[in-house]
Design a protein around this nucleic acid. Sequence first.
DNA 1: CTGTTAGCGCCTTCAG
DNA 2: CTGAAGGCGCTAACAG
Lengths: 350, 350
Amino acid sequence: MAAPTLAEVARSAGVSPATASRVLNGSARTPAPDIAERVRKAAESLGYSPNAQAQGLAKSSSGLIGLIVHDIADPYFSAIARGVQAAAREEHKMVLLATTEGTPADELTAVAAFAARRAESIVIAGSRSTRLQDREGNALLAGELDRYCRNGGRVGVVGHPVIGASAPEGYHVVVVPNEDLAAELARELGAIHTGDFVIIAGPDGILTSDDRVRGFQRGLATAGLPPAEVVHTSFDRGGGHASGLKLAARIKAASTAESEIPRLCIFAVNDVMAIGAAAALRSEGLRIPQDASIAGFDDIETLRDFRPALSTVRLPLEEIGRLAAGRTGVDAASHVSGQVALRTSTASTP
Amino acid sequence: MAAPTLAEVARSAGVSPATASRVLNGSARTPAPDIAERVRKAAESLGYSPNAQAQGLAKSSSGLIGLIVHDIADPYFSAIARGVQAAAREEHKMVLLATTEGTPADELTAVAAFAARRAESIVIAGSRSTRLQDREGNALLAGELDRYCRNGGRVGVVGHPVIGASAPEGYHVVVVPNEDLAAELARELGAIHTGDFVIIAGPDGILTSDDRVRGFQRGLATAGLPPAEVVHTSFDRGGGHASGLKLAARIKAASTAESEIPRLCIFAVNDVMAIGAAAALRSEGLRIPQDASIAGFDDIETLRDFRPALSTVRLPLEEIGRLAAGRTGVDAASHVSGQVALRTSTASTP
DNA sequence: CTGTTAGCGCCTTCAG
DNA sequence: CTGAAGGCGCTAACAG
């Protein structure tokens, strides 16, 4: 990665490095026009490319913002990534990407790497976990992040604060009203659905999932309905699919056993899982919403053309990314809102 | 972004910076165990975080790999991004992300930024364009990339070589047999479909689109069929949707005019456009494949649960990203293969 | 307005 | 095996 240096450009233009620096980069005032032109020409003809590493070292800044996601190919994360990218662009920064498959251990590695690169801020998009096996990882992660913050770094988290974080400053959490929105969804579904409810949730301890489950149950209670059965599975399409298969078997068994079975309404805690579940039901010959209703959460754009249209809760994913990445406002938290979107997948009149 | 420096750690451990450096980073030989331990402890208690910028400056390397996509939220790009990310991870590098909305001007900016950061390689995932308005942008981009390569950079391009690139070394193109696969798709569709064919293509000049159109026409010809009409639109879901609306109107008009209308088979040059078109047809009350067949290209994972299942051509997107990012092999090009996947959306027996 | 002088934090010969 | 010295490329006070 060799390239002409500022010094070479300066020499070629017959000026000092300082002067060359001043014209080539945004110094307060540009040197004399003729000199400036000479320098610019020299730079151009030499094919000068400023060394951002050196610049960063000298002015101790990096223009980098780190983004941590579970999987960049997951549409939930890529939507957030788009927002982060947009914010970065506006601030003339670049985004560094890290993928972690959701384990705090990997997140720790990513944070350390970002810190080493002196990223000016770090955005953590994946859900926090309180699972036992993540206990130690969480603690280490919190420690690393606290240190990063104390050194002047800024971290933006989507959803929940990092477990165990204690640095007084630097943290910014984008609060997503998962629980309230899930409750609202449950209430609206409760008003049009007459059968049982089942929730396909992520592993116990995944906060985003837990919140949505809790909210849904609360909404059901508010509507005077009994709580839904909760099935725990992995927080992705595969989990939704697997659970969908099991539920399909149950639905089919019930339909042959009794003549009159109230339809099941399935709430998968995110759209990707819901789509997986829907695919499973269909592969078993069940129709949606005739044989079972199904709803998701997130309102993933890529999935909007899915038919039957998936009832879900719209979240401003791109905005969330933007907020998590943006310059800290006065507050240590931003709040976003979402809306329940009831569509065909939970239609009550087949 | 202040943080303890190596010098501070060294002082605290009572050794020289050189020694501290040797133990904290992978030097050839590690100093005496006791010394090493002392240094490690000092680093730990001070919360030392190596400054990657300084390291990079000193050893002129960055451990960065730049990725340029049109839109990270587009599932095609996010799938490739996953592959790039995976490759980067294996090589202990980090990926820098840039979004360009497809304009060479933005790509130029991104490349310059990557070059400034001394990224060790750059992968360009978006389709090349020969459109007139991109002429100048392409030339500038090629110039910038050539310079980058001459300085020792490596660039991996997906699909087609960069227009106008002339650097002898450093370029690596991942060749995707778009034309052949589209021809194969046309042949297979020609064998089961009896009506007319229409192609929903991207703007004229987008090479990926052009290749697929050309291949499809060739396949049709091979099957002894007349060429398909080509509709040009934007290379995204919106374009597919808009064209779908127009085709729907046409189909409906034809069905009221004549009693017997051969079904139309629509080939959208990528899955996202195909889904948009399908949604448009359905919104107009048309059924797929009863009223019209439709096929796409790419086999986007997130779209696989779509119903009716979309006929398409499977491309190993993640592998493509991996190859584009991977260390250069002996050759200046890698080849990937794909397979036609005929599914329900083009079923011939409704 | 321009040039000189120090570092920024780290690595790497080269001595000891 | 360890320490001292120089340099990576650039910016930022200071002088002139």
